[in-house]
């Protein structure tokens, strides 16, 4: 049997609530993922340290405060520096015009606010390379 996919979910930055991220956590749980839930106010360093201990297959970030163009590349760089080799997926409020910039910066996928539940699961799954 294959291992369940393990994903770290965190919200980076100082903005308010994590309702959306909780919904994503439940979606992924119901699709058979093991979700390591970190919730609010995380830093990229903290997330990377957790991904390392948890041997996570992917990192999912929720960014709502408009900081995605700095925070997401910083996360990608931190993952590369520690040689974790895991995809970084960004959700939250990302304007369409910024999506390509994030992908160019090494983000594996961007999930906008309109993404359906089924798409969230499918996209996350597709970013995790089979062993």
């Amino acid at each position: 049997m294959q291992d369940p996919i393990r994903i770290v979910l965190a919200k980076i930055g100082f903005d308010g609530h994590d309702r959306g991220l909780k919904v994503v956590a439940r979606l992924l749980r119901d699709a058979g993922f093991e979700v390591i839930y970190l919730g609010l106010r995380q830093t990229t360093d903290a997330v990377v340290a957790v991904a390392e201990q948890e041997d996570a297959d992917a990192i999912g970030l929720s960014i709502h405060n408009g900081g995605h163009l700095t925070l997401a590349p910083r996360m990608v760089a931190a993952v590369a520096e520690r040689e974790l080799g895991v995809p970084v997926i960004v959700g939250g409020i990302v304007p369409d015009r910024d999506i390509q910039a994030l992908l160019d910066a090494g983000v594996a996928a961007v999930l906008g606010p309109g993404t359906s539940g089924a798409d969230v699961v499918a996209v996350v799954r597709s970013t995790v390379a089979p062993e």
Partner: peptide
């Protein structure tokens, strides 16, 4: 716990642990 229905799990213990350690 893992969900008996789908095998998934939300692992939420360490959210209470990392901060005091840091």
């Amino acid at each position: 716990p893992s969900s008996p229905l789908n095998g998934g799990a939300i692992l939420g213990d360490r959210i209470r642990m990392d901060e005091p350690i840091q």
